[in-house]
């Protein structure tokens, strides 16, 4: 990984108006607790997911269409390093958002009602796992779609898979193998089944973690494969 690319992505993202706006928004969420309005940590994570949908798109597509990617790819850095550095830069941005907001949230909760720290840690891990997957999925689409085509493709992809899942679950009774196959593929790609807290409870932690890892690698390595195998010339923008 190249630290200069990571730092560049990170500083660029945290200075963006959308990040600052969300940061202020999260602060507002926390302050309202002092007026005895109950806010669950889930709301903070929902905010983080929403921010990810604004921060990640165009991670590669924008650089490819503007041509700046050529400045990176002609440097003495492996292309895989360029790819992972950019993804990690976005991840770091989201991590910083989560850490700061969760800290403020925990502090305010503690002041108000003495919230247990372990609950927050589980929420934090759950949030990070989901954010990481979300970033890897949008990055995957960004390697071959221009500008913000990645976020459009991601939303269509998610809606399409959810739709197919619901149809197969509700209407498709037989053959059973087909129904199960469709559902397995969709569960694998979208990870709809469980949250991290559920992994801990159902006694199948390793299996759940393995599935998550496979899903993450599928998108990360798939994106890397496309990133490395495509052309970066004028006709390709």
């Amino acid at each position: 990984m190249n630290k200069y690319i990571v730092i560049k992505v990170f500083t660029e993202k945290i200075k963006s108006p959308i990040y600052i706006g969300f940061f202020i928004g999260a602060g507002g969420f926390i302050i309202v607790q002092f007026f005895e309005i109950v806010i669950s940590p889930k709301k903070i994570f929902d905010l983080a997911f929403l921010l990810t949908l604004f921060i990640t798109p165009g991670i590669f597509g924008k650089e490819i269409s503007s041509g700046t990617i050529q400045f990176l790819l002609t440097k003495p850095i492996k292309w895989s390093s360029v790819y992972f550095s950019k993804v990690f830069g976005v991840w770091l941005t989201m991590f910083s958002f989560l850490i700061f907001t969760i800290f403020l949230f925990g502090l305010s909760q503690f002041l108000l009602s003495g919230l247990k720290a372990e609950n927050l840690i589980i929420f934090l891990i759950d949030g990070l796992l989901k954010l990481t997957l979300l970033i890897s999925m949008i990055s995957f689409f960004s390697t071959f779609l221009p500008d913000y085509g990645d976020i459009v493709a991601f939303i269509i992809f998610a809606l399409l898979l959810s739709g197919i899942y619901e149809i197969s679950h509700t209407f498709l009774k037989s053959p059973v193998w087909l129904k199960n196959s469709i559902e397995s593929i969709i569960l694998f790609l979208m990870g709809k089944e469980k949250s991290f807290s559920a992994w801990l409870q159902d006694g199948n932690f390793l299996k759940n973690f393995g599935l998550y890892l496979a899903r993450l690698l599928f998108f990360l390595l798939g994106g890397l494969f496309i990133f490395k195998s495509r052309d970066y010339g004028y006709g390709q923008r």
Binding site: N2, Y4, E12, K15, S66, G67, T68, I77
Partner: peptide, 25 residues
């Protein structure tokens, strides 16, 4: 490499851009 079509990181200053490029080398 001097590309024909010039795309830059427009939020950077010229100096910051050159420092970034140099660090990549």
């Amino acid at each position: 490499y001097l590309p024909e079509r010039i795309g830059f990181y427009k939020t950077m200053t010229g100096k910051e851009f050159l420092i970034f490029q140099g660090k990549l080398f």
